[in-house]
Amino acid sequence: MDMTSNFELMEFFVSMLIVGIGVALLATGLFTSYFGAGKSQKIGFALLFLGAIILTLTYFMAFGGIDAIPTLFDAKEVDGDLKFMNALISGVAALGGMIIGMFAILFVLMKVDTVDDLEDLDLEDLEDLDLDEELKKLEEELNQADDSGEAENNSENSEDEK
């Protein structure tokens, strides 16, 4: 069977590529125009406008309606369905499948008790720590270091005076 004979690159790949760009621009534009401020908000409105134009053009290129815009994504019927609609349904179904798979993975990971990973940590040592004592030790060490530093400075000064 020659698998390359009936591939519809224009109807399936290019149309979905443009729809993907349009949806992404629309979504990011909505987000930025709502939450953005000042310059970011203006960019958000521009992205929103661009996304809306791209999706509208894609609609007319697929289903026709305006003579000036050619129907590039040929809406020929295949088994009673439009090719463009087949592409859209395929893409949405695969994305839906991926989302279902991700949710299943998250559900299983949340249900599985992964607390035993923490057993590798020696928490008993942490519980035995007396923070006050540790702080006192640190302060003493710092004081000793300061004292030794001062003593060295004094000895250097006395040598200079001589």
């Binding site: 009936n6 591939f7 519809e8 690159l9 109807e11 399936f12 790949f13 290019v14 149309s15 979905m16 590529l17 443009i18 729809v19 993907g20 760009i21 349009g22 949806v23 992404a24 621009l25 990011t28 992205l47 996304g51 087949n86 592409a87 859209l88 395929s90 893409g91 179904a93 695969a94 994305l95």
Partner: peptide, 19 residues
């Protein structure tokens, strides 16, 4: 053809986010 549509949609989404 469905796989082409799926890959096209994903690439299109990535391009949109890059823009």
């Amino acid at each position: 053809n469905g796989m082409l549509a799926f890959i096209g949609g994903i690439i299109g989404g990535i391009i949109g986010i890059i823009v």
